[in-house]
């Protein structure tokens, strides 16, 4: 291990490096998304700033930094300033427990899955904070929708994440990855419950991150821009960034829980493991983009119907099947 043995120093160094890297990756992921969406719609995407628009994220960041920072007169100022910052911090929190390679994890918690789900559930806090502090009816409605949605979808998300936990017999993400070693990824092994759980988890994590097609808290056609209506400049940029970070970290967790994390063919090298992990995360993130640029936004009541009438019972059934499988079928389960 090339990292210091003091756990606090280890977490600090690795955390700063990983978070900086993730923010850089995020800004180029936005470039990738714009190119991807462009090609999907027969357009070319960003083209003019740098080769094939590669400098566009930097130009956008400068544009956002130079914009006027407007605060509504009647806003709750401390909360208004705090919300975008908290949004990014909360979105980045999940990185702490995701193992990039064997041993390469900021905090190897025994309750990693629980920590991640708790951190994910906390995204509702800055969203609601922004909605309340803006003193704007659209922001308020958006904030209330975000709360309803996140609280509802937290439940099927937990059910989806519990299936790998049952199979691996541990909430430690490193052990979950170890249980999938050799290509026995929980997505297809054991066949059935893993795949269903992955679908439920993916849908729920899209909804929890307020991504299209579940972006009703910022439904542009109804709510101007939802919770970020009153935000300008870099504060708006931070909400934007937080949404993408949340999506990438969610993809990373999906890759860890269902796609075997850093498991892949080839020699057991740290660098290769990181590459496998990055490839899987990008594949999941691209799949999310594919969904985003294909489907239209659900209505509020359809969203709740999907959660309470379909995902929740399906999650319970899948959980039951997984538990029975883990108890009675001998093999690669703890």
């Amino acid at each position: 291990m090339p990292f210091p043995h003091d756990p606090i120093l280890h977490a600090l160094v690795l955390g700063v490096v990983l978070c900086s890297a993730l923010l850089g990756v995020t800004s180029y992921f936005i470039w990738f998304e714009r190119k991807f969406a462009g090609r999907m719609q027969g357009r070319v995407g960003p083209k003019h700033v740098g080769w094939e628009g590669l400098l566009q994220p930097i130009a956008d960041a400068f544009k956002l930094l130079l914009k006027e920072d407007i605060v509504p007169r009647a806003a709750d100022k401390p909360l208004f300033h705090l919300a975008p910052l908290l949004a990014v911090v909360v979105a980045l929190m999940g990185v702490a427990v995701v193992p990039l390679a064997s041993g390469l994890v900021i905090a190897d918690l025994d309750v990693g899955v629980l920590f991640f789900l708790a951190a994910g559930a906390m995204t509702v806090l800055p969203t609601w904070m922004a909605g309340w502090a803006s003193n704007n009816k659209y922001a308020l409605i958006g904030g209330m929708r975000a709360v309803a949605q996140s609280v509802a979808y937290g439940v099927p998300m937990v059910f989806g994440a519990l299936v790998p936990v049952i199979f691996a017999g541990s909430m430690n993400l490193s052990e979950i990855v170890a249980a999938q070693a050799g290509g026995h990824w929980f997505l297809w092994w054991p066949p059935g419950p893993g795949l269903l759980a992955a679908g439920i988890f993916l849908m729920a994590s899209l909804a929890e991150g307020n991504r299209i097609p579940f972006d009703i808290p910022e439904a542009e056609s109804e709510l101007v821009s939802g919770v970020s209506t009153e935000y300008t400049g870099m504060k708006f940029g931070m909400f934007y960034l937080a949404e993408y970070v949340h999506s990438l970290v969610g993809s990373a967790l999906f890759a860890t829980l269902f796609l075997g994390g850093h498991d892949g063919p080839g020699p057991d090298l740290l660098a290769l493991q990181v590459v496998w992990f990055a490839l899987k995360t990008m594949a999941v993130a691209t799949f999310i983009l594919w969904i985003r640029w294909t489907f239209v936004r659900l209505r509020s009541d359809q969203l709740m119907t999907l959660c309470w009438k379909w995902l929740l019972p399906a999650g319970l059934v899948v959980l039951m099947v997984a538990a029975v499988w883990a108890r009675f079928v001998p093999g690669r389960t703890a």
């Binding site: 991807f36 462009g38 090609r39 999907m40 027969g42 070319v44 083209k47 594919w290 294909t294």
Partner: peptide, 20 residues
Amino acid sequence: CLDALRITFRHLGRKPTTVM
């Protein structure tokens, strides 16, 4: 839903119609 995903995926390989 699957049809929609198939259609958007097919469009990925299509040449952009944009005229610069």
